[in-house]
Simulated scan of single mutants.
Amino acid sequence: MDLRIFTEPQQGASYDDLLRVAKATEAAGYDAFFRSDHYLKMGSADGLPGPTDAWITLAGLARETSRIRLGTLVTAATFRYPGPLAISVAQVDRMSGGRVEFGLGSGWYDAEHEAYGLTLPPLKERFDRYAEQLEIITGLWKTPAGSTYSFKGEYYSLTESPGLPKPAQSPAPPVIIGGQGKKRTPALAARFADEFNLPFADADAAAAQFARVDAAAAEIGRDPKEILRSVALTIAVGRSDEEVARRASAIGRDLTELRANGLAGTPAEVVDRIGQWREKTGITRVYLQLLDLADLDQLELVAAEVAPQLD
């Protein structure tokens, strides 16, 4: 079972804060450090000192870490044009020596689009654009050097692009797709995903969605086992009930609710909870949403007392 650290820096974090967590993630032995791609805080957080751009951040971390995988859950397709995004991600992959994983979603948070002058199209158009972006970005990466790539879609057109730079990983960085849409999301995952992620779902809903992705893959002749299954869950792990309660309170979550919908409890309880998830859904990877980025002790506790029991 892979354990990855997943952060939400729009809630209030500088690059230095993220660097500190990323280095602690690497030192503790985790598989990867991921971050969200948002420009506006959510809920009651003040969001200070303000947002950091996901791919600028990951470019910096690519040069200041050496082992951990780096990526987004998930980059918003509404934030960037597909051609320049393909260049940015390929460049960060090269800067990291081939450690990037590329999560891409359709975009959804209307308030951040309004706050920064971004267009959030209606849902159908948003998914149509998303599908074209997946086609273009992966097409650019996989075009052989010396050849060109062209695409004519409803929203994007490319003419004889050299598809450069190429990522360090060949033919492309792993692509992560997620979400709970019952039709188009599984179909896109079947075509493009190396990994399918469900954030903050319950196990029964996750199992049903993984089954839809499997069916969509089989329908186009792809082996469903090629698509890794993962979930993202919020953590509040402590050595005692008091420490667990303190960590839940620090992130503004009700402990009873977090026990039901996240990973809250002592290390033994969390190991048992992950085991239940694995048995019910077949997941092999968990993104641990660490909301209190100052709490490196919790990160180290999970690495020391949870991870070794999951092999």
Rank of each mutant, 00 (worst) to 15 (best):
F6S: 14
E8A: 14
Q11I: 01
D16N: 12
D17R: 14
V21N: 06
A27R: 06
D37L: 01
L40I: 00
T57L: 08
E64Y: 14
S66T: 14
R67L: 03
P82M: 04
I87R: 15
G98R: 11
F102R: 08
F102M: 09
G105Q: 10
Y109P: 10
Y109G: 06
A111K: 15
A115Q: 12
Y116D: 09
G117H: 11
T119W: 15
L120M: 14
T143P: 04
G146N: 07
Y149Q: 12
G153V: 01
E160V: 00
L164Y: 08
P173Q: 09
P174M: 05
I176N: 08
T185Q: 06
P186K: 10
F192K: 07
A193K: 01
L198G: 04
P199M: 04
F200P: 00
D204E: 14
R212L: 11
V213E: 05
A217F: 02
E226N: 10
I227R: 08
R229N: 07
V231N: 05
V231E: 06
V244F: 04
R247T: 04
S249D: 13
G262I: 05
G265P: 03
V270Q: 02
K280L: 12
T284K: 15
T284L: 00
T284M: 02
D295N: 12
L301W: 08
D311Q: 15
